[in-house]
C-alpha cells in the first residue's frame, strides 16, 4: 500500500501544480456569479436555477478533471519515459495501476470538496439553508461515480495509445451513460428482437452512472437519500471500479514496455 500511496501522491501533486483545476474552478465561479447576478423579475430569492447551473458546471468540471487527469497518466509516463525507472523499481504493474487510479481519484475528490464548498456557499447565501448532509451525500455519490469513470478511462489509456482519443471516447461514454443509461430498457422494449435482447443486456451490463446523479434531489430540496441505498450505490461503484481496474491490469500486466 505504501508503494501505491507514493504513486498516488505524485498524481495528486501533479493536479495541484497544474492549471487545469484552477481554470475550471474560476470558470465555475465566474459563470455561477454571472448567472446569479442576472436580474430575474426583480426577485433575488429565486435560487434553484442557480443551484442547477452551479451543479451542472461542477458535474462537467468533475468529468473533465477526472478524464483528462486519468487519460494522460500512462501515455505521459511512456512519452517522458518515466515509466522505465519506475517499473525498474520493486513496483508491480498492478501497484502501478492502483497508484494511478488512487491518485486520480483522490485528486478528483479534493477538487470535488472545493467545488461542493462553493456550491454550499452559493446556495446558502441565497437560500439561507444549509442541508450539509444532503450535500455530503451528493458529493460522495458524485465521487463514487467518478471512481468508475476514472477506472474505465485508465483501462482506455492502455487500449488507446493517444490520450486525446481516450479522453474523447471516455467522455462520450460517460455522457452517454449519464444521459441515456436509465432509458435503455425502455428503448429496448420498443424495438424488435434480436436488438431488444442486445439492448437489454447492455442495460444490465453497463455501469449506470446516472444513479449517482442526485442533482434533482438537491435542487428541489427533496430530502436525504436512505443511507442503506447510499451504501448499496457505493458498493455498486466499487464493483464496477474493481471490474475496470481488473480489466486494465489484465491488459497491462504482460504488455512489453518498449
Amino acid at each position: 500500500m505504501n508503494t501505491v500511496w507514493s504513486l498516488a501522491k505524485v498524481v495528486v501533486l501533479e493536479m495541484v501544480r497544474r492549471k487545469d483545476f484552477y481554470v475550471l474552478f474560476i470558470l465555475t465561479v465566474l459563470l455561477t456569479g454571472t448567472a446569479g447576478s442576472v436580474n430575474l423579475f426583480n426577485d433575488r430569492s429565486i435560487v434553484r436555477y442557480l443551484k442547477e447551473i452551479c451543479l451542472l458546471l461542477i458535474w462537467l468540471s468533475g468529468l473533465i478533471i477526472a478524464i483528462t487527469c486519468t487519460a494522460r497518466q500512462i501515455p505521459a509516463e511512456r512519452e517522458h519515459r518515466t515509466i522505465f525507472p519506475l517499473l525498474a523499481k520493486p513496483v508491480t504493474r498492478g501497484q502501478f495501476l492502483l497508484g494511478k487510479f488512487l491518485g486520480c481519484w483522490v485528486a478528483t475528490g479534493m477538487a470535488l470538496v472545493l467545488f461542493y464548498l462553493l456550491f454550499g456557499l452559493v446556495s446558502g447565501s441565497r437560500d439561507h439553508q444549509w442541508p450539509v448532509l444532503n450535500y455530503l451525500q451528493a458529493a460522495w455519490l458524485h465521487w463514487m461515480m467518478l471512481g468508475i469513470v476514472i477506472a474505465f478511462t485508465l483501462l482506455g489509456s492502455i487500449v488507446f495509445a493517444a490520450p486525446s482519443s481516450n479522453g474523447t471516447i471516455s467522455f462520450a461514454c460517460a455522457a452517454g451513460m449519464l444521459l441515456l443509461g436509465r432509458h435503455l430498457n425502455k428503448v429496448a422494449l420498443s424495438v424488435a428482437e434480436p436488438l431488444q435482447s442486445l439492448l437489454y443486456t447492455a442495460y444490465f451490463i453497463l455501469p449506470h452512472l446516472e444513479l449517482f446523479d442526485v442533482r434533482e434531489l438537491i435542487i428541489h430540496d427533496a430530502g436525504l437519500i436512505r443511507w442503506d441505498m447510499v451504501t448499496l450505490a457505493t458498493l455498486y461503484a466499487a464493483a464496477y471500479g474493481a471490474f475496470f481496474l481488473f480489466g486494465a491490469w489484465l491488459a497491462f500486466r504482460r504488455r512489453p514496455l518498449n
Binding site: 455519490l141 436509465r182 430498457n185 444513479l211 434531489l217 436512505r226 441505498m229
Partner: peptide, 14 residues
C-alpha cells in the same frame, strides 16, 4: 418498476 435497476434508481431522483 420494470426491473431492479429501475427500482433502485428511484431512490436517487425525485
Amino acid at each position: 418498476h420494470r426491473d431492479w435497476l429501475e427500482a433502485f434508481g428511484h431512490h436517487f431522483r425525485p
